[in-house]
Nucleic acid binder design. Structure first.
Lengths: 156, 156
DNA sequence: ATAATATCGTTAGCCAGGCTAACGATCTCG
DNA sequence: CGAGATCGTTAGCCTGGCTAACGATATTAT
């Protein structure tokens, strides 16, 4: 029998590979939006998290403020977001999505989800149930991974 | 009750999100290698696919030749790969990994797999079985989504 | 055999998107 | 009010994408 460890390592590997292939596929859908990945992602936060300051946006996207300044400037030039002064704090810049920004994002999202959803439509009820349980485990796995720093010499 | 379609779309969405979070997590492990994603990926091809020409490498990474020239030059400066002239065709540049390049890559691979495998170790037998079946469905899903079978890249 | 063509990698030059350092404007608190 | 903190921008650098153009080499046609 395959050892306990080997089987689990193999599963980890398959999962890893599957995630890579899935996202590679979906990226092609994103290309159709005409927006780069960083812009698309930032726009998504603005659309769904409402008006947001530049700093919040930078943190959400795990990027430094100067980088986010560039991205927002690009989105603004394309008419997808607007900068609004905050009435109570003059240091803040509130970023809001324009109607066009919302439309573009939602269309892209629909495109992205469509191909995956179509594939899901092709599953049997049994497979669907298996997928559902698998995703739950998957999610647990991810939160478990997050808590493992895996630093070589964290000892002090 | 939730409609047939809605439930499947929701699952597609969760799967999408889970894949994103997993890869985001693993990228942090890659950072420890000191190599950027494009360099790491290119090095991986060189290590596992043996000596390759620059053009092959560019195609494998889905990048144009001038871009690959830059990446290879960077790897070469770090002493991870070497350019060798082809004895039969003077136009070709063969790229080979140095011992150091191999070592760096394999260490990174081990790091990457470790965190995920550790997480898998924490699963119960039941969860493990669920994950296993889920992954099978997941893989079927991906092949259903795929349209054009571009050149495979040996992702580590 | 040589001329035309095709292929390969590089160079030059552009752009987006990362970063740090430094700064001006603004707010907050002593 | 003044000192310090916070926020966003600017400046300047790097990597990694691209296209266009080119030189060197192979290949093919004449």
């Amino acid at each position: 029998m395959k050892s306990h460890r080997a089987k689990r390592a193999e599963l980890a590997d398959q999962l890893h590979s599957a995630a890579i292939h899935l996202l590679r596929q979906l990226r092609k859908e994103d290309d159709a939006s005409g927006l780069s990945a960083p812009r698309l992602s930032a726009l998504s936060v603005v659309v769904f998290a409402g008006p947001v300051t530049l700093g919040q946006l930078a943190r959400a996207e795990q990027v430094k403020p100067p980088t986010m300044t560039k991205i927002v400037t690009g989105l603004e030039k394309d008419g997808l977001v607007e900068r609004k002064a905050d009435s109570h704090d003059g240091r803040l810049t509130r970023i809001v999505a324009t109607a066009r920004g919302q439309r573009i994002l939602l269309e892209g999202r629909a495109r992205r989800v469509r191909s995956l959803t179509q594939a899901v439509e092709g599953l049997s009820e049994t497979e669907l149930a298996q997928l559902e349980r698998g995703i739950k485990v998957f999610q647990k796995l991810i939160s478990a991974t997050r808590r493992q720093p895996s630093e070589e010499n964290a000892e002090t």
